[in-house]
Amino acid sequence: MNKCYLGVDIGSISTKGVIIDENYNILSSNYIWTSGNPIEAVKKLMNTLTILPGYKLCGIGTTGSARKLIGLMLGANVVKNEIIAHAVGTLSFYPNVRTILEIGGQDSKIIMINNGIITDYAMNTLCAAGTGSFLSSQAKRIGVDINDFGSLALKSKNPVKIAARCTVFAESDLIHKAQLGYKKEDIVAGLCKSIVLNYLNNVGKGKKILEPIVFQGGVSKNKGVEKYFNEILNTKVIIDENSHLMGAIGIAILSSKENHDELNLNINEIKFETKGFECKGCSNNCEVVRIFKDEKLIDSFGNKCEKGLKTF
């Protein structure tokens, strides 16, 4: 029996799953929308991932903003943040990489690597400016399908100027330019360019971006954004065909580093439920999140002190 490992990356917008073998080859993978319900999304994802005959599952890892919840649900042996997962995943394909640019749904990050070790990283601050969710909401507003966004941007010869600092300013610029009658492709191209400028100004501020550069995360599939990264950084960024899966691959690799016997994965028949509950112990009113598996409490978090655990 060969060993295989499952990695799941549950982001705010999309859920990514991958099964790899011991040599980190992808055996099965899928990318679906989270649609605001990570539990259902993971159930759906697991139905589409297949463990080939002759393989046994020996590790499960979860990452992404819902990593804690899904980690409990799947019985994961590794639960880690996205930064480490992305770096480990990328390093397995590009061992020489120096800079990883990542733009996801809600977060964007830059990771600097030297000799296979993370030396520095930065994430966007509290604001979601210049991330995937901004792009998709603007695409909807101007009536362009997000999948055609990149190719439409490539057609533009004269991208409009859009304020890059803040989404609120960017949006009012956008409305203004649209009302002036600019072509759709010019507006879309301007938007792609503003994402790149915003990213480099905010996340990449003060960082030395060294080559080779790998660009990943959902937004890396957008040809327009890729074009402006190349243009502004004056180089060619590498975009892997699996660039959207890197986090999931990374966490699967991390789960393989822990030696485990075969793990059981059977979530379809089991009912998972999250119940919020407001602790009245003090005026903090912590929202304690309780996770039930078949109506049995398996874990809870969100409390700031011990009181939150005692009250139920």
Partner: peptide
């Protein structure tokens, strides 16, 4: 940078990643 926001999920991710990065550097 802290403001009056009360959710600590993003905060935890950043601290955890910072620790992991240092730990990785130290191990190597």
């Amino acid at each position: 940078s802290m403001d009056s926001n009360t959710s600590d999920v993003g905060f935890e991710t950043r601290i955890e990643a910072f620790y992991d990065m240092i730990e990785m550097r130290k191990r190597n």
